[in-house]
Design a binder for these strands. Structure first.
Lengths: 200, 200
DNA sequence: GCCTACACTGACCGATCGGTCAGTAACCTG
DNA sequence: CAGGTTACTGACCGATCGGTCAGTGTAGGC
């Protein structure tokens, strides 16, 4: 909806993106309820009014913050579901999924350990649906207790590991080290689960 | 500190304990920052002033809420460290630790995914120390990246599984099912780690 | 009966919360 | 130079926050 040539970058998108990224960091570290619009505005060098100019409300800001990651996750899932069920397909999926976790660790952290208190929000409902269909893809109806535990330990454990590693007293792991170790551990966790991918 | 016969139960301890348990539930589900003293008071049927009569501040209430679990964890750790390092000792410890997680799941949930935002608090510092010494007991200095990942996935995954299972759309698992599955999965996760318990 | 200690409460405090609104300076279009 | 849009802001709103304080009722010890 605009005819201007190109250099709209300065203000057209950057402020919004900057606010989203700062808000995400704050939400993930202090919690959604524990973060005020004023804090976000201060950290970004804007006024609180500016934040509410770009986003209709605090909740809308959170939605905008989490939605792109959910889009990505949806694509990854679609790709997995459309493949034939095999060990190699599952391995490829695990690698893809762990890359997703690495890139979107803060968003996943938000979902994993604030999802409970944000249940009313649309993006959280969507995330729950995606995770549920992921679970179904990996093992039909999540039959045994052990399968459920394997799945949620892998998901919650990876999410925790990625967001809490900064709290370790030792030096943080590089992304490459983390990815390799996570692929090993998560594959091991999911290996005993029977493969039965299914659409919808 | 009291000479009265016996029935001091009605008011001497119950109000405090009741407030602690209600506060813990709220803190765990909505977050410490997201829970107001008014909400806790309402849920308990007291006034906000009463909450502040029993606990000097909101932070003091959180400390009182988490401290008993930390005491228990300290005892479990001491017991493990004082045993000779062996596979059977580790298995016994894992079982003991998972019982601890089951009983204190909300407190562990608080530590695991709000520890970051509560770093200033004494009880959180203590919990971090305990976890660190637990990690040291299991594998010296946490040498390899994979060992670190195994440890934190087991801890964070178990904590997530226990607190998020209520969000599953299916019926929740019984404690016995959960314990058995967790023991299997966590033992499997920690098995490749070399045992080198050490004091302090 | 008197007195203290205890459990508890309502009124109130300054600060901050999310959110609204009336601007304003800069810029593009005609 | 008008006119409109865009990005942004300060002043302000009612509500709520954590916390203080001056009580009030009551039970037990003397």
């Amino acid at each position: 909806m605009q005819t201007s040539p190109a250099p709209e970058t300065s203000s057209r998108q950057t402020a919004r993106e900057e606010l989203k990224s700062i808000a995400l960091r704050q939400f993930a570290s202090v919690g959604f309820a524990g973060t005020s619009l004023q804090q976000i505005a201060d950290a970004a060098g804007y006024s609180k009014s500016s934040v509410l100019y770009h986003f209709a409300s605090k909740e809308a800001l959170l939605e905008a913050t989490l939605t792109p990651a959910m889009d990505t996750l949806g694509e990854i899932l679609d790709r997995f579901v459309s493949r034939a069920p095999s060990r190699s397909a599952q391995d490829a999926f695990v690698a893809e999924f762990i890359d997703f976790l690495l890139v979107n660790r803060l968003q996943v952290h938000m979902f994993v350990n604030q999802g409970q208190s944000l249940q009313g929000m649309a993006v959280i409902g969507r995330a729950n649906g995606l995770i549920e269909s992921l679970a179904s893809s990996l093992c039909g109806e999540m039959r045994t207790a052990e399968e459920r535990v394997r799945f949620s330990v892998a998901l919650g454990g990876a999410a925790y590991m990625l967001s809490a590693s900064e709290m370790w007293s030792t030096a943080p792991l590089s992304d490459d080290e983390t990815r390799a170790a996570l692929v090993t551990v998560v594959s091991e966790l999911l290996a005993p689960m029977q493969l039965r991918p299914m659409a919808s």
